[in-house]
Simulated assay, not measured.
Amino acid sequence: MSYKNFPMVPRVIFGRGSFNQLNDILEPKRLNSKAPFIFLVDDVFKGNAWLTSRVPLSYDDRIIFISANEEPKTSQVDALVEDIILTTKERPSGIIGIGGGTLLDLAKAVAIMLTNEGEAKDYQGWDLVKNEAIYHVGIPTISGTGAEVSRTTVLTGPEKKLGINSDYTPFDQVVLDSELTKDVPKAQWFYTGMDCFIHCVESLEGSYLNAFSQSYGEKAYDLCKEIFLNGTLDETEAQEKLMMASWHGGMSIAYSQVGIAHAMSYGLAYLLGTKHGIGNCIVFDHLEEFYPEGVKLFKEMKEKHNISLPQGLCANLTDADFNILVNIAYGLEPLWENALGKNWKTIMTPGKLISLYKKM
C-alpha cells in the first residue's frame, strides 16, 4: 500500500494583531528591490484604511483589489498573471492573498501560474502542476472555507468547476489574525462557517475516514457546535474559535475527502454562479437521507441564527441544464466514493440526483 505524502503549510502565525508583523515576515523573502510583493486584496477593504494602511508596501509592491462577488475563474487567474508579468520588472518576490476563500484561492493559483506554462484550466485536476509556485502567503479575513490550509485552489473553468490539487498549492505562510474577521456580515459569517461544518460532517461520515482526518474533523465539528449552537462565547472568543475550526476543518479533508454537498454545489456554482458557502447550505439542507445527524444540527443552527435560504434556485432549469448539473457532479468521483462507497453510481443515479436538485 502506498500512502499519500501530503505537504502542509510550513509556517503559521496566530493571534489578534499578528497582521502587524507582516513586514517582518515578508522582508527576508524579498528577492531584490525590483521583485515586488503583489497583494491581492478583497475589494470590500477598498477605502478601509484600518486594513489597507497596514499593508507593508515598498519599492514596486502593489495592491490589486479584487471583487469576491463571484467564484474565482480560470480566466481571472490568467488575466492576473498576464497583468503581473507585463507590469513587473522581474518575477515577484511573492503573492499575498488577503480575503476569504475566493481571494486565497486566487493567490494560490496565481503563484502557481507564474511558474507554470499555459492556462490555469490546463491544471484543473489532481497533481498536474510541474513546477514549484512562487512564495505565497494566505491571510484569511473570514473563517470557514479551509482555503488557508488546503492543497487545492477551486476554480470555475470553461468546462468545469474543479480545483488545482497539487503539492505546490498550499501556502508557504499563513497569518491567522481573527481581528480581521470582525466586520463580516452575519449571513456571510453563517454560510462560510457552515462550509466548515459541512466539511467536517462529510469527512467524518465518509468511507475515506482515518484517525488523522478524524482527529481534526471532530475538533472542528465540536468548535462549530460551540460557536453556532451554544451561543455562550463572547465575540472575540467566537472569532478565534471559528478561525481554528476553519483550520482544523481544512486539515480534516487533507487526508480524506468531502462528499455529496460539495459535489452537488460545484454544479450550482458552475451553472448559476452560486457562491460556494451558500451553495453548500442550499444542498445540505436536503441531504437528511445521507447525513441525518448533521442536517438536523444544521437546521437547528439555521433557526437559531434566523437564516432563511434562497428557494426555487432550480425552478426554471431546462433538461439540458439538469444534464450539466449531473455531469459536473458526476465528474467528482472521489467525493461520491467517499460518501457512498465504490458502488455510488447505483445509489446516486442521474434521476435521483435531478430529483434532489429539483427540491432546491
Rank of each mutant, 00 (worst) to 15 (best):
L287T: 02
L287I: 11
L287A: 01
E288D: 09
E288G: 07
F290C: 05
F290K: 10
Y291I: 00
P292E: 07
P292S: 08
E293A: 02
E293I: 15
G294R: 04
V295L: 02
V295M: 06
V295T: 03
V295D: 02
K296M: 14
F298R: 00
E300I: 14
M301F: 04
M301A: 11
K302N: 06
K302T: 07
K302Y: 02
K302L: 07
K304T: 07
K304M: 07
K304C: 10
N306K: 14
L309A: 02
P310C: 11
P310W: 15
P310H: 15
G312M: 06
G312C: 13
L313I: 15
C314W: 11
C314S: 14
C314G: 09
A315F: 11
A315V: 15
N316T: 09
N316C: 11
L317P: 00
L317F: 05
D319C: 15
D321S: 14
D321M: 08
F322T: 08
F322R: 10
N323I: 01
N323Y: 10
N323D: 12
N323P: 08
L325K: 00
L325V: 03
V326I: 04
V326Q: 00
I328M: 02
Y330V: 15
Y330R: 13
G331I: 03
G331F: 11
G331Q: 10
L332K: 09
L335G: 01
W336I: 01
W336S: 06
E337T: 12
E337P: 01
A339G: 15
A339M: 02
K342L: 13
K342Q: 13
K342I: 14
N343Y: 05
W344N: 02
K345M: 13
T346M: 12
T346C: 08
I347T: 15
P350G: 06
P350Q: 05
G351W: 06
K352C: 14
K352F: 15
L353E: 05
L353H: 00
I354A: 00
I354D: 04
I354Q: 04
S355K: 13
L356A: 00
L356C: 07
K358R: 12
K358M: 03
K358W: 06
K359I: 07
K359N: 09
M360K: 07
M360D: 02
